[in-house]
Simulated scan of single mutants.
Amino acid sequence: MSEDDALVDEFFSEVNDKYYPQVMEGIELLEGGDIAEGIEILSRPLHTIKGVTGFMAGFEYASGFTHKVEDFLKKVQAGSVDRSSDNITLLSRAVNMIFQVIEQLKEDGVPDETEPNEVLDKIADASSGDGGEESLAFDGVDTEEKNGVLVLRVKDARVHLAAQRELLVSALLKAEPGGKVLVDLSTVLTFNSAAWDTLISYSEAFEISAVGLGPACKEVFFSWGFDSNITLFPDEDTYFKSVSN
């Protein structure tokens, strides 16, 4: 293993074990209305990520993107950007996208700049005083009726924001009262406790199960005890075999 490979491995170990949990804590505070404390917590990992990726060959784009997000965070903190709910949602989305960018660089070596550029355009508008009114675009949830079950296929890689939870609820309410609902998270990297809580709040109205959980999703799912209300299956085939018996 080269020194560069060792640096990348060490960095991503820190991302998963330290920086990402800090960022999730900060975002949950933002969403809960404790903006000052949320920004304070976010500042530390973002500053470190910006600096470290700047020294990592191939990750310069992540450093530049993080720098622009950090600047936006500082403007919100200083009050030069209005702390409207739309701007706070934009800030949360931008912070989440940092992790999407660095994961993409690790896996593919090049970023897909389409969505980051969209976010940066919104940041520029908000910073100039023209932003904050347009709804943020998310991939959302696809629904499918299959063998009497409403299947919800969550398409966003990270589900942490109130707007995403609203999309999840809108899809969930397409089920018949008392009906079976299967939540497919096979393309989701992280699904925070607030998103699970949203599903739990409907577990008495619907019989909710889940499939396709990756490591981070499983960690939150089991550590918070959500398995007491939602049944987890290893895959969709196993689920449908169980409901057909």
Rank of each mutant, 00 (worst) to 15 (best):
F206D: 02
I200R: 13
S209W: 00
T231F: 13
A216G: 10
E219A: 07
C217V: 05
I200C: 13
F206E: 00
S203V: 04
F206Y: 06
E207H: 05
I200W: 14
L232F: 13
E207A: 05
P234R: 13
S203D: 04
W224L: 14
Y202L: 02
S228K: 14
S201C: 07
G225H: 07
S203H: 04
F233K: 08
W196Q: 06
N229E: 15
N229D: 15
D227K: 09
G212W: 01
A216V: 09
F206W: 03
G212S: 02
G212L: 01
S228I: 13
S223G: 04
F206I: 03
I230A: 08
D235T: 11
V220C: 03
S228T: 15
N229Q: 15
L232E: 14
S228L: 13
L199D: 01
A195G: 07
S223T: 03
T198D: 04
C217D: 03
G214K: 06
G225D: 06
D235L: 10
F233A: 10
K218D: 10
F221M: 03
S223N: 07
V220S: 02
A195R: 02
A194M: 13
K218H: 11
S228P: 13
E207G: 04
F221Y: 07
S209I: 02
V211N: 00
F222V: 10
W224N: 14
Y202T: 01
F226Y: 11
D235Y: 12
D235S: 12
L213C: 08
I200Q: 15
T198Q: 06
G214N: 08
G212M: 02
S209H: 00
C217R: 01
S203F: 04
G214F: 04
V220Y: 02
E219C: 04
L232G: 14
V211D: 00
I230G: 08
V211Y: 00
G214Y: 03
F206M: 02
A195Q: 05
I208M: 01
T231S: 13
A205T: 12
P234N: 13
D227N: 11
G212A: 03
F226T: 05
G225V: 06
A216K: 09
D197V: 12
V220M: 05
G214P: 05
E204P: 10
T198C: 07
S223M: 03
A205M: 14
I230N: 06
S223F: 01
T198L: 06
G225C: 08
D197P: 10
A195F: 05
P234A: 15
L213K: 05
A216I: 09
A195V: 06
E219M: 07
P234W: 14
W224A: 12
S203E: 03
